[in-house]
Design a protein around this nucleic acid. Structure first.
Lengths: 111, 111
DNA sequence: ATATTATATTGCAATATTACGATGAATATA
DNA sequence: TATATTCATCGTAATATTGCAATATAATAT
């Protein structure tokens, strides 16, 4: 099939999965790390830094933007991208919520 | 293409992406949350709890096991699954490493 | 106006993912 | 031994993802 049965799961589970999917490509991780260092960048910077074609970078940027983790502002001829701090923290909490839920409940170990 | 150019990225970026990909499906998130609550479970428990076929659950369990976040032990006729605490923390650090790297460096905001 | 620059979008080929029925393998129970 | 239970694997159909060339769009510069 290739289609996910989202109706079987909670909104939170679907949301976490959706965000994880955006992080599930090394190019998108690399873009975020580039932005952490550089604070802002344009598409062309990334084409030079990563080894992917312009169209491919643009596609990855769109996915990052769609989930809200970055934002783009038109700046003359180019588009300036940066991390959205509010959404970043929101997503951070989404993940740490899952991870801490287990860490805090460590009881009997395993089978 | 559908094939990721892993050779363009660092080991850490590929590792983070690989783990994120495993979390990028609500069924697998649901399985982890089930395990956090129940501590252990067998395939049949999940088939009853989530609404997916046995073969599908088995496939998701394999992906979780392949990345090391859970482990399965043969217990008579059934297989007992649980979270691997060491790997869990490792993965937690992988994500919080990324998220904190930005949170700690918040300087000039955006474009 | 026209050329230049920077991105986005479209279309396509190759590959990956999701889901499930059917089947197989292994252990337990009658 | 025969039968049920539990799970993994195989095969397959439907859909999604990745990557890029070609093209479109939009703002600036000449």
């Amino acid at each position: 099939m290739g289609i996910t049965k989202t109706d079987l799961f909670t909104t939170e589970q679907n949301e976490l999965a959706k965000v994880a999917k955006v992080l599930a490509h090394p190019a998108r991780v690399a873009i975020l790390e580039y932005l952490i260092q550089a604070n802002t960048c344009i598409n062309g910077d990334l084409v030079g830094s990563l080894g992917l074609a312009q169209a491919t970078i643009s596609q990855h940027l769109r996915e990052l933007k769609e989930v809200g983790i970055i934002q783009g502002t038109i700046e003359g001829v180019s588009v300036c991208y940066c991390i959205d701090p509010v959404r970043w923290e929101e997503i951070q909490n989404l993940f740490s919520g899952l991870f801490q839920r287990y860490s805090n409940s460590e009881g009997g170990d395993c089978c």
